[in-house]
């Protein structure tokens, strides 16, 4: 029957076997094992357990293991290339969208800018510059004219809308006052 000392002695077995206990502790275990058949049995069985663990068969991976792994890696690399390509075209599209947005915003700003409105001599210059920036990819001259005239019309519509919404805002502010 095991008691508290037995529990303590059993806790020392690994280090006792590896001979890393202090001299005092080692002699305490020796003395206990000589007197306690229960602990002596546990210690002996522990030795058998360790022997059995050492005898466990060594397993090997299948012959195709490395080939399968490298094929998976190749697939992974291809996927990541596609992913990068997708990401870069996505980024490009997003970039175009932001650029177009900026051009529209700048255009709007010019049209509703009081300085340019009150000084019409300055605005056409700006407008022409903006328009030429908007259509750098047009291949035919006719196309340029068409698209630029369309854009001017659109810009005018937007200009009126902006002024309308501006007065609405003002009105709201007045109301709240």
């Amino acid at each position: 029957m095991q008691n508290n000392e037995c529990v303590f002695i059993c806790e020392q077995f690994t280090e006792y076997r590896e001979n890393t206990l202090s001299i005092e502790l080692k002699s305490q275990v020796d003395t206990h094992l000589a007197a306690c058949s229960s602990c002596a049995k546990v210690f002996q069985e522990l030795g058998l357990v360790l022997d059995k663990l050492k005898q466990l068969p060594t397993l090997s991976t299948t012959q195709e293991f490395t080939n399968i792994l490298m094929a998976r890696i190749q697939h992974l690399d291809q996927e990541s290339v596609l992913h990068r390509m997708y990401n870069s075209s996505y980024t490009r599209v997003a970039g175009y969208a932001i650029a177009a947005g900026l051009i529209v915003a700048i255009g709007l700003n010019i049209w509703i800018d009081p300085v340019s409105l009150s000084n019409p001599d300055r605005s056409p210059g700006y407008a022409v510059q903006q328009q030429s920036n908007q259509i750098p990819q047009s291949k035919s001259f006719a196309g340029q004219i068409d698209s630029s005239s369309d854009k001017t019309e659109d810009s005018l519509k937007i200009q009126y809308k902006s002024i309308d919404s501006g007065s609405q805002k003002l009105q709201l502010v007045n109301d709240s006052e």
């Binding site: 397993l59 991976t61 293991f65 399968i68 890696i73």
Partner: peptide, 28 residues
Amino acid sequence: YKDRLINFVYRFLNDMTDAEDLVQETFL
């Protein structure tokens, strides 16, 4: 490492196919 890892992982999973898959995942 493939054989060392299969011996390690197999003791947890007790299935050779699952163990190989897991070693593959480790290398990935």
